[in-house]
């Protein structure tokens, strides 16, 4: 039907990923939960990524504040710095930066790990050992991503706001209390709720793409490398697409 080969393979992959996602939800609902493996994955995906996410978020908070100051000073609205910065950090920057960092770290990690497990027949070995490898490997990792990425994003918001607080105090003086007062006053539920909600989907994206790429890795070490690489590329791209969709939906629902 389609004679364009690139388009053809793109559509085929999109279909495969959709089916993979559907399978994830089916398997997720079936009993025999791999809870201890889930906790183990949460530890690696959540706790182990926190340092990286925190450093990035802190720097972003600081830099955005320093960068925004000159324009606001021009308008004589320097007092609005905490408000403006906190809105952009909470609504957009912290969640997306977290997701991108996670796509880089977790997505490639899962892609490479499952890829090498596929290549060295560990996935087959699991199946032979009476374990549903999809449940044991994919469901635990994707669920861990879905739960950990939002927590990372929330902590990233906290850390980036702290960075913004320090940024406000480089040239001007904004007291700790005034800063938080302004933050809490400016931001509403309609800023926080959509921002946190979309990170669940970012987590799903990172987990699914990483697992999909790794689970169906081609034979050989090259296949593993390619799995890890394309997991990062596709999930990062999808994060932006999801972000676009999220902003439209939030707009439609009246979270402006």
């Amino acid at each position: 039907m389609f004679y364009n080969k690139a388009l053809d393979s793109f559509l085929e992959e999109a279909g495969d990923i959709s089916r993979f996602t559907a399978k994830f939800f089916r398997e997720f609902l079936k009993p025999r939960y791999e809870f201890s493996e889930f906790l183990r994955q949460c530890f690696y995906i959540g706790y182990k990524s926190f340092g990286l996410v925190a450093v990035t978020a802190f720097i972003m908070g600081l830099v955005i504040t320093i960068q925004s100051r000159p324009t606001l000073v021009e308008f004589g609205a320097e007092a609005w710095l905490p408000k403006m910065v906190s809105i952009s950090l909470i609504r957009e920057i912290a969640p997306v930066i977290t997701a991108l960092i996670c796509a880089g770290k977790i997505g490639s990690g899962i892609g490479a790990e499952l890829g090498s497990m596929r290549v060295t027949e560990q996935i087959d070995a699991m199946e032979v050992s009476g374990t549903n490898p999809f449940k044991f490997l994919v469901v635990t990792r994707v669920t861990a991503c879905i739960t950990m990425v939002p927590i990372l994003a929330v902590l990233a918001i906290a850390v980036s706001l702290y960075g913004a607080y320090l940024g406000c105090n480089i040239h001007g003086v904004v007291s700790w209390k005034l800063f938080w007062n302004q933050v809490f006053e400016t931001n509403t539920f309609s800023d926080v709720v959509p921002a946190v909600t979309k990170t669940f989907f970012f987590g799903l994206d990172i987990g699914i793409i990483g697992c999909f790429k790794g689970y169906f890795s081609k034979k050989g070490t090259e296949g593993v490398g390619r799995s890890a690489n394309s997991a990062v590329v596709i999930s990062s791209l999808l994060i932006f697409v999801l972000d676009l969709v999220a902003v439209q939906i939030a707009d439609l629902l009246g979270f402006t």
Partner: peptide, 14 residues
């Protein structure tokens, strides 16, 4: 100890 650290992490976020 892994689970304890994970617990602290999750708790902090929440």
């Amino acid at each position: 100890s892994r689970n304890i650290r994970l617990g602290i992490f999750v708790l902090a976020g929440t």
